[in-house]
Write a protein that binds this DNA or RNA. Sequence first.
DNA 1: TCATGTCCCATAACGGCGATATGGGTGCAT
DNA 2: ATGCACCCATATCGCCGTTATGGGACATGA
Lengths: 192, 192
Amino acid sequence: MDVRHKAEDATRDALREAASRILRREGVRALSLRRVAREAGVTTMGIYSRFGGKDGLLDALHAEGFELLSEAQASLPEQADPLEAIVAHARAHRRMARDHQAHYQVMFERSTGFEPSSVSRERATGSLEALRAKVSDAVSRGALDGDPESIARAVFAQVHGTVALTLAGIEGGDGEAGHDAALRALLRGFAP
Amino acid sequence: MDVRHKAEDATRDALREAASRILRREGVRALSLRRVAREAGVTTMGIYSRFGGKDGLLDALHAEGFELLSEAQASLPEQADPLEAIVAHARAHRRMARDHQAHYQVMFERSTGFEPSSVSRERATGSLEALRAKVSDAVSRGALDGDPESIARAVFAQVHGTVALTLAGIEGGDGEAGHDAALRALLRGFAP
DNA sequence: TCATGTCCCATAACGGCGATATGGGTGCAT
DNA sequence: ATGCACCCATATCGCCGTTATGGGACATGA
């Protein structure tokens, strides 16, 4: 029984990995239940019993995406300057979006026809927490002035905006340097 | 012949209007060729002969969306303060996104599986022009300092970021006031 | 040990999708 | 008048997500 349970978890993982692989390589559009099931060596119904359907599978990928984001931001080197810590945080965000575009779309675009579950939505909102902590640090050290929550949201919106426009193909000529410059301007605007 | 041509344009318009109506009321997901054709009193093939397929139809809606955006920003009252003109511009942008969410998704989210044509992509990039003009005005009047192109892109990203996060259901508590405050902070960062 | 019942999952089916092939009818040119 | 070319509606194809259904493995009680 216990073994059986383990086996179930194994095919569950196999399904999630197959889905993740297809998502990375061929995008949201190519992610069909039949395709994922075939690639994982399971019948389509296997996805229904494990994930409840396509939304459940996408929910798992949604979570995986936010894990990728927080991992990228957790392993950053320490910064003496609290503002530089925020810039590094934003850079990691942009890098994650560039390296996992399709995951990023599942995370932030609702036109896929997928609605994240309530816990997934909370996790998404919670992804602001790490940034809020860095902003709080900057505020307490006199590098920024204002409500950390509001500042963090403004920064998050700025970073997500640059990423989203890039993914949409509305590209400025400045690239990463320009994105950094825009963020630094925003931070200057919150200077004491 | 001329009459015939007019009639063709009429059903073309009927198709575009039906598509726009379905998009507004039921979202991108509900927009199928069969549905649009039925609602316009035409067979599915009528869309192929007029628009070349689903991408052509979405391209028309993409264009319609950017028209809605530029219309909303063209009819704004004059502002004495050039920075207030930029804030008003951003407000119109956010209002358009709120009032035409599905159009906005077609305009900026690529996870719909629709790739805009090259002219549509140019039109999208060109939608920055009106903002760039307002920024240029602010720079020449000494309210901002820097490259107008870069500043305009930063502002656009900031505004789009707040809108996109709202549409994604990652909502801050501050609402419109918070969005204005974030934009004003960014503008402060570009002050001379 | 054997019969019974329960649960799980693979096969099959359903309605809808975007896209394509095809056949019949209309209108023009010869 | 007759042939031809073009246009569009019908039918079809291969997918999709989801649901129904049938059979087989396993546990349970006699």
